[in-house]
Amino acid sequence: MPKKKKIIASLLLSAMLLLQTIVPVSASTWNLTGDTNVHDPAYIVENGTGTHWVFSTGSGIQVLYSTDGKNYQRSLPIFKEKPAWWSNYVPNQAGLDVWAPDIFYYNGTYYLYYAISTFGSKVSAIGLVTTNSISGGIWKDQGLVMYSNDASSYNAIDPNVTQDEKGNLWMVFGSWSNGIYITAINKDTMKPTGNSYRIATKSGGIEAPNLVYNRDTGYYYLFVSIGKCCSGLDSTYKVAVGRSKSVLGPFYDKNGVDMKNGGATVIDSGNVAWIGPGGQDVNGTNVIARHAYSAAENGAPKLLISDLYWDADGWPYYN
Protein backbone atom coordinates (compact mmCIF):
# COMPACT_ATOMS: atom_id res chain seq x y z
CA MET A 1 0.00 0.00 0.00
CA PRO A 2 1.41 3.46 -0.91
CA LYS A 3 2.57 5.58 2.05
CA LYS A 4 -0.18 8.21 1.56
CA LYS A 5 -2.93 5.55 1.65
CA LYS A 6 -1.40 4.00 4.78
CA ILE A 7 -1.50 7.38 6.51
CA ILE A 8 -5.16 7.92 5.53
CA ALA A 9 -6.11 4.41 6.70
CA SER A 10 -4.32 5.00 9.99
CA LEU A 11 -6.14 8.32 10.50
CA LEU A 12 -9.50 6.70 9.74
CA LEU A 13 -8.81 3.90 12.22
CA SER A 14 -7.82 6.41 14.90
CA ALA A 15 -11.02 8.39 14.28
CA MET A 16 -13.14 5.24 14.56
CA LEU A 17 -11.46 4.30 17.85
CA LEU A 18 -12.02 7.83 19.19
CA LEU A 19 -15.72 7.71 18.26
CA GLN A 20 -16.09 4.40 20.06
CA THR A 21 -14.83 6.01 23.27
CA ILE A 22 -17.27 8.94 23.18
CA VAL A 23 -20.38 7.40 21.58
CA PRO A 24 -22.08 4.59 23.55
CA VAL A 25 -22.37 1.30 21.73
CA SER A 26 -25.98 0.85 20.63
CA ALA A 27 -27.86 -1.91 22.37
CA SER A 28 -29.20 -4.35 19.82
CA THR A 29 -32.82 -5.26 19.22
CA TRP A 30 -33.17 -8.98 18.61
CA ASN A 31 -34.23 -10.28 15.22
CA LEU A 32 -37.36 -12.23 16.16
CA THR A 33 -39.19 -14.65 13.87
CA GLY A 34 -42.18 -16.98 14.05
CA ASP A 35 -45.29 -16.08 16.03
CA THR A 36 -44.56 -12.76 17.77
CA ASN A 37 -48.10 -11.46 18.28
CA VAL A 38 -48.28 -10.27 21.89
CA HIS A 39 -49.56 -7.54 24.17
CA ASP A 40 -47.96 -6.79 27.57
CA PRO A 41 -45.26 -9.49 27.40
CA ALA A 42 -43.61 -11.07 30.45
CA TYR A 43 -40.30 -12.71 29.53
CA ILE A 44 -38.22 -15.35 31.32
CA VAL A 45 -35.63 -18.03 30.52
CA GLU A 46 -36.48 -21.29 32.27
CA ASN A 47 -33.83 -22.79 34.55
CA GLY A 48 -32.45 -26.10 33.36
CA THR A 49 -34.11 -26.19 29.95
CA GLY A 50 -32.93 -22.79 28.72
CA THR A 51 -36.29 -22.30 27.02
CA HIS A 52 -37.40 -18.71 26.51
CA TRP A 53 -41.00 -18.08 27.57
CA VAL A 54 -43.27 -15.11 26.95
CA PHE A 55 -46.63 -14.74 28.71
CA SER A 56 -49.00 -12.06 27.49
CA THR A 57 -52.46 -10.51 27.58
CA GLY A 58 -55.16 -12.56 25.90
CA SER A 59 -57.54 -15.45 26.27
CA GLY A 60 -56.46 -17.59 29.23
CA ILE A 61 -53.01 -15.89 29.27
CA GLN A 62 -51.26 -16.39 25.96
CA VAL A 63 -47.95 -18.29 25.88
CA LEU A 64 -45.05 -18.21 23.44
CA TYR A 65 -41.83 -20.21 23.67
CA SER A 66 -38.49 -20.40 21.91
CA THR A 67 -35.48 -22.68 22.20
CA ASP A 68 -33.06 -19.98 21.01
CA GLY A 69 -34.78 -16.76 22.10
CA LYS A 70 -35.29 -15.66 18.50
CA ASN A 71 -37.86 -17.95 16.83
CA TYR A 72 -41.15 -18.21 18.73
CA GLN A 73 -44.05 -20.62 18.66
CA ARG A 74 -47.40 -20.42 20.43
CA SER A 75 -48.19 -22.89 23.19
CA LEU A 76 -51.45 -23.65 24.97
CA PRO A 77 -52.90 -20.89 27.20
CA ILE A 78 -52.65 -21.18 30.98
CA PHE A 79 -56.42 -21.22 31.59
CA LYS A 80 -58.91 -23.34 29.69
CA GLU A 81 -61.80 -22.17 31.86
CA LYS A 82 -62.49 -19.54 34.50
CA PRO A 83 -61.51 -20.30 38.09
CA ALA A 84 -64.68 -20.05 40.18
CA TRP A 85 -63.41 -17.14 42.27
CA TRP A 86 -63.04 -14.75 39.29
CA SER A 87 -66.75 -13.97 39.11
CA ASN A 88 -66.86 -13.01 42.79
CA TYR A 89 -64.54 -10.05 42.20
CA VAL A 90 -65.00 -9.18 38.52
CA PRO A 91 -68.52 -10.33 37.63
CA ASN A 92 -68.55 -8.60 34.23
CA GLN A 93 -65.16 -9.81 33.07
CA ALA A 94 -65.30 -10.86 29.42
CA GLY A 95 -64.75 -14.59 29.04
CA LEU A 96 -61.16 -15.68 29.61
CA ASP A 97 -59.69 -12.25 28.87
CA VAL A 98 -56.61 -11.89 31.11
CA TRP A 99 -54.31 -8.88 31.28
CA ALA A 100 -50.62 -8.11 31.73
CA PRO A 101 -49.13 -11.22 33.37
CA ASP A 102 -45.85 -11.15 35.28
CA ILE A 103 -43.55 -14.14 35.79
CA PHE A 104 -41.27 -14.34 38.84
CA TYR A 105 -38.93 -17.17 39.86
CA TYR A 106 -38.30 -17.67 43.57
CA ASN A 107 -37.00 -20.63 45.60
CA GLY A 108 -37.58 -23.21 42.89
CA THR A 109 -41.08 -22.05 41.94
CA TYR A 110 -42.39 -19.91 39.08
CA TYR A 111 -45.04 -17.42 40.18
CA LEU A 112 -47.28 -16.14 37.39
CA TYR A 113 -49.29 -13.09 38.45
CA TYR A 114 -52.05 -11.69 36.22
CA ALA A 115 -55.02 -9.33 36.22
CA ILE A 116 -58.68 -9.59 35.32
CA SER A 117 -60.81 -6.49 34.84
CA THR A 118 -63.31 -4.65 32.70
CA PHE A 119 -61.93 -1.95 30.42
CA GLY A 120 -62.25 1.55 31.89
CA SER A 121 -63.27 0.27 35.33
CA LYS A 122 -61.53 -0.19 38.69
CA VAL A 123 -63.43 -3.43 39.27
CA SER A 124 -60.33 -5.55 38.97
CA ALA A 125 -58.41 -8.38 40.60
CA ILE A 126 -54.90 -9.79 40.58
CA GLY A 127 -54.54 -13.57 40.68
CA LEU A 128 -51.71 -16.07 40.92
CA VAL A 129 -50.82 -19.48 39.50
CA THR A 130 -47.62 -21.43 40.19
CA THR A 131 -45.54 -24.25 38.78
CA ASN A 132 -42.18 -25.90 39.40
CA SER A 133 -41.71 -26.48 35.67
CA ILE A 134 -43.00 -24.17 32.94
CA SER A 135 -42.18 -26.81 30.33
CA GLY A 136 -44.25 -29.31 32.32
CA GLY A 137 -47.30 -27.15 31.76
CA ILE A 138 -49.04 -27.95 35.06
CA TRP A 139 -50.10 -24.79 36.88
CA LYS A 140 -51.74 -24.57 40.30
CA ASP A 141 -54.32 -21.88 40.99
CA GLN A 142 -53.32 -19.90 44.10
CA GLY A 143 -56.42 -17.73 43.99
CA LEU A 144 -56.84 -14.04 44.72
CA VAL A 145 -53.85 -11.79 45.42
CA MET A 146 -55.71 -8.49 45.75
CA TYR A 147 -58.71 -6.68 44.27
CA SER A 148 -60.16 -3.20 43.75
CA ASN A 149 -63.55 -1.69 43.00
CA ASP A 150 -64.96 1.72 42.11
CA ALA A 151 -64.47 2.90 45.71
CA SER A 152 -60.75 1.95 45.72
CA SER A 153 -58.01 4.53 45.28
CA TYR A 154 -56.01 2.20 43.03
CA ASN A 155 -56.74 -0.18 40.18
CA ALA A 156 -55.60 -3.76 40.93
CA ILE A 157 -54.01 -4.55 37.57
CA ASP A 158 -50.53 -4.77 36.00
CA PRO A 159 -48.71 -6.65 38.79
CA ASN A 160 -44.93 -6.95 38.92
CA VAL A 161 -42.97 -8.65 41.71
CA THR A 162 -39.34 -7.90 42.50
CA GLN A 163 -36.71 -8.60 45.16
CA ASP A 164 -34.84 -5.77 46.84
CA GLU A 165 -31.15 -5.62 47.81
CA LYS A 166 -31.93 -7.13 51.23
CA GLY A 167 -33.95 -10.05 49.82
CA ASN A 168 -37.39 -8.63 50.63
CA LEU A 169 -40.18 -9.02 48.08
CA TRP A 170 -42.38 -6.23 46.72
CA MET A 171 -45.16 -5.88 44.19
CA VAL A 172 -45.80 -2.77 42.10
CA PHE A 173 -49.16 -2.45 40.38
CA GLY A 174 -51.74 0.04 39.21
CA SER A 175 -52.97 2.09 36.30
CA TRP A 176 -54.40 5.55 35.58
CA SER A 177 -56.59 5.69 38.72
CA ASN A 178 -54.24 7.53 41.11
CA GLY A 179 -51.25 5.90 39.46
CA ILE A 180 -48.73 3.26 40.52
CA TYR A 181 -48.55 1.65 43.97
CA ILE A 182 -46.15 -0.64 45.82
CA THR A 183 -46.84 -3.18 48.57
CA ALA A 184 -44.73 -5.68 50.50
CA ILE A 185 -45.08 -9.38 49.62
CA ASN A 186 -45.11 -12.15 52.22
CA LYS A 187 -42.50 -14.78 51.31
CA ASP A 188 -44.68 -17.63 52.56
CA THR A 189 -47.93 -16.73 50.80
CA MET A 190 -46.35 -14.66 47.98
CA LYS A 191 -49.24 -12.25 48.48
CA PRO A 192 -49.38 -8.69 49.86
CA THR A 193 -48.91 -7.93 53.51
CA GLY A 194 -49.53 -4.48 54.97
CA ASN A 195 -50.39 -1.23 53.22
CA SER A 196 -49.96 -0.07 49.65
CA TYR A 197 -48.11 3.17 48.89
CA ARG A 198 -48.45 5.38 45.83
CA ILE A 199 -45.13 6.00 44.07
CA ALA A 200 -46.04 7.45 40.66
CA THR A 201 -48.78 9.39 38.89
CA LYS A 202 -49.04 10.92 35.42
CA SER A 203 -51.80 12.85 33.71
CA GLY A 204 -52.68 11.31 30.38
CA GLY A 205 -52.00 7.78 31.54
CA ILE A 206 -49.47 5.68 33.43
CA GLU A 207 -49.42 1.89 33.88
CA ALA A 208 -47.42 -1.32 33.38
CA PRO A 209 -44.95 -0.71 36.26
CA ASN A 210 -41.76 -2.75 36.34
CA LEU A 211 -39.38 -2.36 39.29
CA VAL A 212 -35.71 -3.37 38.97
CA TYR A 213 -32.72 -3.08 41.29
CA ASN A 214 -29.33 -2.57 39.64
CA ARG A 215 -26.51 -3.52 42.01
CA ASP A 216 -23.92 -1.84 39.79
CA THR A 217 -25.56 1.58 40.10
CA GLY A 218 -27.16 1.16 43.53
CA TYR A 219 -30.52 2.43 42.29
CA TYR A 220 -34.03 1.05 42.01
CA TYR A 221 -35.57 1.80 38.61
CA LEU A 222 -39.30 2.15 38.06
CA PHE A 223 -40.13 1.52 34.40
CA VAL A 224 -43.63 2.54 33.32
CA SER A 225 -45.70 2.96 30.18
CA ILE A 226 -47.18 6.42 29.77
CA GLY A 227 -49.82 7.61 27.32
CA LYS A 228 -52.59 5.61 25.68
CA CYS A 229 -52.37 1.95 24.76
CA CYS A 230 -54.54 -0.50 22.90
CA SER A 231 -55.37 1.71 19.91
CA GLY A 232 -53.13 0.21 17.26
CA LEU A 233 -51.44 2.86 15.14
CA ASP A 234 -53.22 5.57 17.15
CA SER A 235 -51.56 4.43 20.39
CA THR A 236 -49.37 6.99 22.18
CA TYR A 237 -47.64 4.59 24.58
CA LYS A 238 -44.04 5.37 25.55
CA VAL A 239 -41.60 3.57 27.84
CA ALA A 240 -40.39 5.84 30.65
CA VAL A 241 -38.34 5.49 33.84
CA GLY A 242 -37.37 7.07 37.13
CA ARG A 243 -34.99 5.93 39.86
CA SER A 244 -34.54 5.93 43.63
CA LYS A 245 -32.06 4.84 46.27
CA SER A 246 -34.98 3.29 48.18
CA VAL A 247 -37.42 0.63 46.98
CA LEU A 248 -40.24 2.79 48.35
CA GLY A 249 -39.08 5.90 46.52
CA PRO A 250 -39.23 8.74 45.91
CA PHE A 251 -38.44 7.97 42.27
CA TYR A 252 -37.03 10.88 40.26
CA ASP A 253 -36.62 11.36 36.53
CA LYS A 254 -33.48 12.81 34.91
CA ASN A 255 -34.73 16.34 35.59
CA GLY A 256 -35.21 15.63 39.29
CA VAL A 257 -39.01 15.54 39.14
CA ASP A 258 -40.66 13.10 41.54
CA MET A 259 -42.71 10.47 39.69
CA LYS A 260 -45.48 11.06 42.24
CA ASN A 261 -45.70 14.54 40.71
CA GLY A 262 -45.70 13.39 37.10
CA GLY A 263 -41.98 12.89 36.54
CA ALA A 264 -40.91 10.30 33.94
CA THR A 265 -37.95 10.17 31.57
CA VAL A 266 -38.98 8.69 28.21
CA ILE A 267 -36.48 6.15 26.86
CA ASP A 268 -38.59 4.79 23.98
CA SER A 269 -41.25 6.74 22.11
CA GLY A 270 -41.34 4.42 19.11
CA ASN A 271 -40.55 5.21 15.48
CA VAL A 272 -42.15 5.05 12.03
CA ALA A 273 -42.03 1.25 12.04
CA TRP A 274 -43.02 0.58 15.65
CA ILE A 275 -45.81 2.67 17.17
CA GLY A 276 -46.69 2.98 20.86
CA PRO A 277 -44.08 0.79 22.59
CA GLY A 278 -44.96 -0.27 26.13
CA GLY A 279 -46.13 -3.03 28.44
CA GLN A 280 -42.45 -3.57 29.14
CA ASP A 281 -40.79 -6.29 31.20
CA VAL A 282 -37.16 -5.98 32.30
CA ASN A 283 -35.41 -9.32 32.79
CA GLY A 284 -32.55 -8.94 35.25
CA THR A 285 -30.84 -5.73 34.26
CA ASN A 286 -29.77 -6.47 30.69
CA VAL A 287 -32.85 -7.48 28.67
CA ILE A 288 -36.10 -5.60 28.05
CA ALA A 289 -39.19 -7.01 26.34
CA ARG A 290 -42.20 -4.95 25.27
CA HIS A 291 -44.87 -4.77 22.61
CA ALA A 292 -45.26 -2.19 19.86
CA TYR A 293 -47.74 -1.80 17.02
CA SER A 294 -46.35 -2.73 13.62
CA ALA A 295 -46.91 -0.09 10.92
CA ALA A 296 -46.16 -2.72 8.29
CA GLU A 297 -48.94 -4.99 9.62
CA ASN A 298 -51.65 -2.37 10.10
CA GLY A 299 -51.13 -1.98 13.84
CA ALA A 300 -50.70 -5.59 14.94
CA PRO A 301 -49.11 -5.75 18.43
CA LYS A 302 -45.73 -7.46 18.18
CA LEU A 303 -43.05 -8.67 20.58
CA LEU A 304 -39.82 -6.68 20.70
CA ILE A 305 -36.80 -7.71 22.80
CA SER A 306 -33.62 -5.68 23.18
CA ASP A 307 -30.38 -5.76 25.10
CA LEU A 308 -30.63 -3.18 27.88
CA TYR A 309 -27.59 -0.98 28.49
CA TRP A 310 -26.72 1.57 31.20
CA ASP A 311 -24.95 4.84 30.49
CA ALA A 312 -22.16 6.42 32.52
CA ASP A 313 -24.69 8.25 34.70
CA GLY A 314 -26.57 5.06 35.51
CA TRP A 315 -29.59 5.50 33.24
CA PRO A 316 -30.96 2.67 31.05
CA TYR A 317 -31.17 2.82 27.27
CA TYR A 318 -31.68 0.58 24.25
CA ASN A 319 -32.43 1.03 20.56
Rank of each mutant, 00 (worst) to 15 (best):
N286H: 12
G249Y: 11
P277N: 02
G279D: 01
V241D: 05
K238Y: 02
A264P: 03
G270S: 01
V282P: 01
F251A: 09
S244L: 04
K260H: 11
K238F: 02
A273E: 14
K260L: 15
Q280G: 00
G279H: 13
F251P: 08
S235C: 01
G278K: 05
F251Q: 07
W274S: 04
K238M: 12
F251R: 08
K260Q: 15
P277V: 03
S231I: 04
P277S: 03
D258G: 07
G276C: 03
N271M: 06
D268R: 00
V247A: 09
R243G: 04
G249M: 10
N261G: 15
S231A: 15
S246Y: 14
V282I: 14
V239A: 07
N271Y: 10
V257T: 15
V239N: 14
V241W: 13
G270N: 03
I275E: 00
A264R: 07
V257R: 13
A273V: 03
I275Y: 02
V239D: 06
N271A: 11
G256S: 13
L233Y: 09
T236H: 03
N271D: 15
T285I: 15
G279R: 04
D281W: 13
K254N: 13
D234G: 11
G249I: 11
W274Q: 01
I275A: 01
G284W: 02
N283G: 01
V282M: 01
D234K: 14
D258V: 11
G284R: 04
P277K: 01
N261T: 06
A273K: 13
D258E: 12
G270P: 05
D258N: 15
N271R: 08
D234H: 10
V272Q: 14
D258Y: 10
N271Q: 05
N271L: 06
I267K: 05
M259F: 11
P277R: 00
G270D: 06
V239I: 15
L233K: 11
S269E: 14
P250R: 08
K254H: 07
D253K: 09
K245F: 06
Y252D: 03
V247G: 12
A264K: 07
G232A: 07
A240W: 10
G249A: 10
M259Q: 07
G279Q: 04
N271T: 00
L248W: 11
L233V: 03
D253P: 11
K254F: 02
G242V: 10
L248Q: 12
G256C: 12
S235D: 02
T265K: 04
N283A: 14
G232Y: 12
S235R: 04
S246E: 14
F251S: 04
